[in-house]
Design a protein around this nucleic acid. Structure first.
Lengths: 281, 281
DNA sequence: ATGAAAATGTCACATAATTACAAACTAAGG
DNA sequence: CCTTAGTTTGTAATTATGTGACATTTTCAT
């Protein structure tokens, strides 16, 4: 809890001298955080140990610790929370809410993500003969993005939006191929079928999806993200951002595993674009 | 300015020992504010005066003052800083860094985004006869995602990856059509040409791109995002996440503008997917 | 008015931060 | 390869700051 509020609230419970200290701090908190205990004692016209006792009464370890709490209170902390957009929000309001909800979702995702699993998937990907990324609907653009990343690595990558092409591709799998299936809910029938198909053809199936979903149950390895989704808009928003970030992590893990010489190669791929671009100023 | 960001930003300008201190603080800011200068010096494996000099370099009065700033930064909601992935990072480290860099980028984007411009674009989109989303490379998946969102709104939406289809589509534009062009750099030649083409055919051209870029100069309206990009990996990562969030904002603005009856329609679109999915448990 | 309990202050001590200076390292020139 | 000026870093002494023990004062019930 904000320590300034706490001081104001408990002011009645303080002794006379302690209250003097409280007054001075409440009146001028900015000055207080930049004062030594001696200065503050003099300002409050009490002795130094009294100030110290005052700090302890507020459940802090002592004066320096108290100052830290005070500084934090003054820094008007607004942690990111998932706030739903409402009917009459102004552009400013809904923009802010969407940014903050997205950041909150990433924070939750960061805490829930299974590093071990990521590492194993990176292992698989670096050793794969062929990598496929499939998703449908909103997850299609995530798969699309994965294609764009992994394509640069000079490994055979496959991506299709078309469900028939996806099926045919899975039919063609063999041992050493990795199929990454992306689905927020993990309940899309045709993706589950893809998983079965790929597995039947000895591919390793990685699911970027919800745990315990039908899709997850068919996968060799699952990367799950627990993201609070804003369902008001009936569109996947934050979940998809979290998925993309996960793809970034996999791609990064991939390049790190391949070592620095490989990364120079990436630079060359990027440089190859130069002719298609206007020079920088 | 947030002192954590400042540390991350100035890291290059520090000396070797000072950088060690920076690393420790960035890796574990919460611990830092509760440590004495001696503890922090030991953790960083440097001497106490070095820590002190480090603090001074960041324009603080000394170590205690630095801790105050740090405490405020941490309370300020954003302990997220753009930290670059390094050669020997463990999966845990690079995952954390990518999540945090992404969040930091969103925070920066949030502050730099032009609400007025967003509102005007939402205006344009709600009145558009036809909306097109085009991007190439990494931005293609962003355009793809935009398609997925706006398609649900029952407005004519166009999206192509193929540059020739894009050109033909722009040729077919007429007054009242909106073409949204997505490019992080704003220097992709063929996109600039698309802008010219669309404009010549009386379409309104919206650029989601860098300000003052060749592309921006051809657009009727520009939505710019200032995002610190991690160029070490030679892949667009955070910039693309910010673009997607911007698309989310536009889509949200669109649905809000259309009113609540329209949103029921969205629910119907979503419900139409039911048959393609497995029931929830 | 008196004594117990609480509050407050004094002073000594401990901890922490800073300064001054010396040693080690770095990089450019001979 | 050495020399030397400049920079960086560490050591040790100094100073500032905070805390604990204990004495003094105040408060309040009897």
């Amino acid at each position: 809890m904000n320590i300034l509020e706490k001081i104001a609230q408990q002011k009645g419970a303080f002794s006379k001298s302690e209250r003097k200290v409280a007054e001075i701090i409440l009146a001028n908190p900015q000055t207080a955080i930049h004062s030594s205990i001696a200065t503050l004692a003099k300002m409050s016209d009490v002795s130094e140990p009294t100030v110290n006792r005052f700090c302890r009464r507020l459940d802090t370890k002592g004066y320096p610790d108290f100052k830290l709490h005070l500084a934090q209170s003054l820094a008007n902390g607004t942690p990111y929370v998932n706030r739903h957009v409402e009917e009459h929000d102004t552009p400013e309001e809904y923009s802010k809410k969407i940014f903050e909800s997205t950041m909150a979702a990433l924070e939750v995702a960061r805490q829930s993500v299974d590093i071990q699993a990521i590492n194993r998937v990176v292992d698989l990907l670096t050793q794969a003969k062929k990598i496929s990324f499939f998703g449908l609907g909103a997850s299609a653009s995530v798969a699309h993005d994965a294609l764009n990343k992994f394509f640069r690595f000079n490994v055979p990558v496959i991506y299709f939006e078309d469900i028939l092409m996806q099926r045919m591709s899975c039919m063609n799998c063999s041992e050493g191929d990795v199929v990454v299936l992306i689905s927020h809910t993990g309940r899309t029938k045709s993706l589950v079928e893809l998983a079965q198909l790929a597995k039947a053809n000895d591919a390793t199936v990685v699911g970027v999806t919800a745990v315990n979903s039908p899709l997850a149950n068919e996968c060799s390895l699952v990367l799950s993200l627990e993201v609070p989704e804003d369902t008001d808009m009936y569109m996947p928003m934050a979940s998809r951002i979290a998925q993309l970030t996960l793809i970034d992590i996999l791609a990064t893990g991939f390049t790190l595993r391949r070592g620095s010489k490989f990364r120079e190669n990436l630079k060359r791929v990027k440089d190859s674009l130069r002719d298609s671009r206007y020079d920088k100023r």
